[in-house]
Design a protein around this nucleic acid. Structure first.
Lengths: 196, 196
DNA sequence: TTACATTACTAACAGATGTTAGTTTATTAT
DNA sequence: ATAATAAACTAACATCTGTTAGTAATGTAA
């Protein structure tokens, strides 16, 4: 009768979600069984249901936690008095840091959200759309100011966001450069690509 | 007793692989059942096994077909007498075109390969590593020639390849710009980001 | 028409899946 | 110590999974 060891500042549900993010990243949502998850947590599968309602709930929890943090960030960034390039620089670094340090959660939110079910699915898709639109708005602002090349803003957003998700490969690579160097390189390439 | 309608120039196996790539893209490999696939093809699940050996084989077929085409392309491109920037430009356009016109296959090869099983898995991972190395070599060449900024070449590869996979969002978006415009925008941003 | 190969069908398998019910054990509050 | 709450356990469910065996229908060549 091993009990779920929950870290000091965290409910048992959070412990389970954390283990889930690890497995969902490793094997994907669909290929992860509740028995896999239970084993990782050190408990029988049925016991999980004392803390959670369903497998879906775990994915929901994960996706919306991440989505909210990003949404909050873009709002405060956009409200700041930085230039457009400055805002983009800041957003970029936020994304990169997140991807470096809370890799698994971001990865899952980014890649496995398709397995959400309605109404969460459409809700989530909506949030993504709003986020990208806001991002594109900042780029458009930069184009108007002549800070940025005359490019299609949504395409630029698409490039930036997906480029960042490439940090996945960085994590997997054997000989990685440092996180700091990675950040500088990414910012250089992407920001210089936008600048006029 | 509906028969599998195979297009003129194609075996029935190819018809099945095509349907599979559609479903694997839509729901992912694990969440796609052989009964789903059978329904899409218009046949009973068991009948599929007159043409294929296993579900895994479908994914293998898909992944390696794509991998080979990309590998062939990078070899001929690298052997050409273009400048480094010219080579990168050409590779970029190849990737983009592929992603635009044979979207589902590339997407699956790119996102679902984790569900391959050994020895195919390690084989595939190896091919990817080789491809990225070759790509990085071209960038390194450009850095040596002073065509390209002094950046970390593997990081640049990572950015480029993942940025391209973002064309996924372009496909999903309601009001898309034209494929040609997309290509020009992507090349502009990414190549200018590299140039010295 | 007959013979043969191809490809579809139905039925079933063994095991995995998410989840529930009912019960026992552990922790907490009185 | 006792009662009450939380959380673990075992057992089982209905359904879905990839796949096989055996058989019937179809298309092709003689």
């Amino acid at each position: 009768m091993a009990k779920i060891k929950s870290k000091k500042n965290g409910t048992k549900k959070e412990t389970i979600v954390e283990a889930a993010s690890h497995l969902f990243h490793e094997k994907g949502f669909s290929a992860t069984s509740m028995r896999d998850l239970a084993e990782k947590v050190g408990v029988e599968a049925a016991s999980l249901y004392n803390h959670i309602q369903s497998k879906s709930e775990l994915l929901q929890e994960l996706c919306f936690k991440i989505a909210n943090e990003f949404m909050t960030n873009i709002e405060t960034t956009d409200a700041s008095d930085l230039t457009a390039i400055g805002k983009i620089n800041s957003l970029l670094r936020f994304h990169i840091n997140y991807m470096v340090h809370r890799f698994e959660e971001v990865f899952v939110a980014d890649r496995e959200w398709k397995h959400l079910s309605d109404p969460y699915l459409s809700n989530y898709q909506n949030q993504r759309r709003i986020y990208r639109k806001r991002f594109a708005g900042i780029i458009q602002e930069g184009i108007r100011n002549k800070e940025i090349k005359d490019i299609d803003a949504p395409t630029a957003v698409l490039i930036i966001l997906h480029a960042i998700s490439g940090i996945e490969s960085w994590h997997r690579s054997k000989k990685k450069i440092s996180a700091e160097l990675l950040e500088e390189n990414m910012v250089t390439i992407l920001v210089e690509g936008l600048k006029k």
